[in-house]
Design a protein around this nucleic acid. Sequence first.
RNA 1: GGUUCGGUAGCUCAGCUGGAUAGAGCAACGGCCUUCUAAGCCGUAGGUCUUGGGUUCGAAUCCCAACCGGAUCACCA
Length: 595
Amino acid sequence: MTIEKMLTQQVLEAVKACYGVELTEKDVQLQETRREFAGDLTVVVFPFTRYSKKSPEETAKELGEYLKQNIEEVETYNVIKGFLNVVISSAYWIEVLNDVAKEEKYGYAKESSGKTYMIEYSSPNTNKPLHLGHIRNNFLGWSVSEIQKANGHNVIMVNLVNDRGIHICKSMIAWEKFANGATPESTGIKGDHFVGDYYVRFDKEYKAQVKELMEQGKTEEEAKKEAPILLEAQEMLRKWEAGDEKVVSLWRTMNDWVLKGFDETYKIMGISFDKVYFESQTYKKGRDLVLKGLADGVLYRKDTGSVWADLTGDGLDHKLLLRDDGTSVYMTQDIGTAYDRFNEFNMDQEIYVVGNEQNYHFQVLSLVCKKLGFDWADKIKHLSYGMVELPEGKMKSREGTVVDADDLIEEMIHTARTTSEELGKLDGYTKDEAEDVYRKVALGALKYFILKVDPKKTMMFNPKESIDFNGNTGPFIQYTYTRIKSVLRKAEEAGIKIVPGDIHTILTEKEQNLVKLIAKLPAVVKEAGDNYSPALIGNYAYELAKEFNQFYHDYSILKEENEQVRNLRLLLAQQCSVAIQNAMGMLGIEMPERM
RNA sequence: GGUUCGGUAGCUCAGCUGGAUAGAGCAACGGCCUUCUAAGCCGUAGGUCUUGGGUUCGAAUCCCAACCGGAUCACCA
């Protein structure tokens, strides 16, 4: 039983014994004692004063005395302004540390929850390369998956590639017109960037044509609809849907270029999927389900032929589900794929990692599925995250203000390399080993930068002030880890073994703080899981690293002469490294052994 | 306008299921490397927690209102 549980129970006993009232666990407010006061855990006694009919101070004293008498681990207590600070014995914390050391994968659930979560993330369009916005999506999706796994859930990570539609056709048309048969191979340009360039080329041509049409006297609205290159793209989409061989073949070729490019980016980002869906294979789904809903009378049809859901009862509007011509829209597809997925995997939850610009879409998706009578409708969860903004505001591809994912990562690696070479700490490493460290540090910096921010908040990224490697950053935490590993290596070289179990010493404040922090990891993992928030894990890892660095600065480990104390500190350092590594692992951040 | 998410130090962010004197990092300034990695540690300075009400022993945190900002409200995806 944890000390928190014991205290809670005994406080209840004390209240009963002293004041004759039976309360429940939730009436006991237990919190960590603030740094500036002596003690480990604090009982807030204000709520009990109405039963004790005494001052908070007196009440706290009575409870404190009771706890001291009845709990072995309670060494002493003090009362400050109605807060009862309880001091727990060193022996208890050493036991906690020993227990942690016994665990195989500390911080991860020991047994399966038996639940299956599907997490859809990434879901790129195949007409342009990934940018900073996608980076947040990918890191979040991966991390949330890892966190749910750590909570014991079975997780299926899926990607729904948006590989069809007018946007692809725009790139295709532009390629046909302007490429003269160039390919990623012939130009040496990465496939996704190559295709993206033609998407931009399309837009340029389109704008020129619109301008020309307007000069010929058309209104802007007309011009935008009638620009020849747009009409060509639309015609191409029609041909694609009709299965035109030439168009489909080009579509396949260009998609392959892009996907190959994405694979490289995914690889360097360190993310992957259990299953990849392609919209070209799913976009017709959902139509039958909607028609059935129509037959069942939960949807309605307009005179023009389109099918709608009436959501006014839920405070929303009417939502189109099938067009006049009977074809599916985005919403219809999502209903269809969700239906298929729940049929196939019977998940307990399906989590969509999608930006908050689509809040409305997912709100409607849930409601419509409920209307259609699917019992899984409320298992749909939209993990809505905020945009990444630049100092000038939102990123706009048309204005060339997007921060490209590949460029950014490459820049980060460059910075990591330069910094590391200046510090010269990797002497003796081969070039490959060193490059591996640069990659880990660069990605660590980027991932931490993105993930430490609460997902639902809009975040700011300033490309001019490159991402820091000092302070509250990924590399700071990685650096702490490498320091520990260095100590552990030296201990091993000196033949010093870590012996868990038999340790008798009094912990210093810093040591005790560290044990408490280490012991907190499982609770943090649970909270991060409940809230789908990698940020909580990030904050935890930083707090732990910071605490360790202070400890490391103030005390020596290997040079400590008291063997018991040295042993304890080594064990402590080792478990710190485990907690840091596991926590950071849940963010998708790898730890180098040296840096 | 409807819906929705935000507003905390110069900047970027924690804290928000109500608790003690609101915390970090960056930037600024001042210290600490003959001692386990200075990508570190310590210190100084920096605040009307947007504003106004309410709830209570106690509010950055909960409720109401206002102000400011983002997102969204297509027979696009």
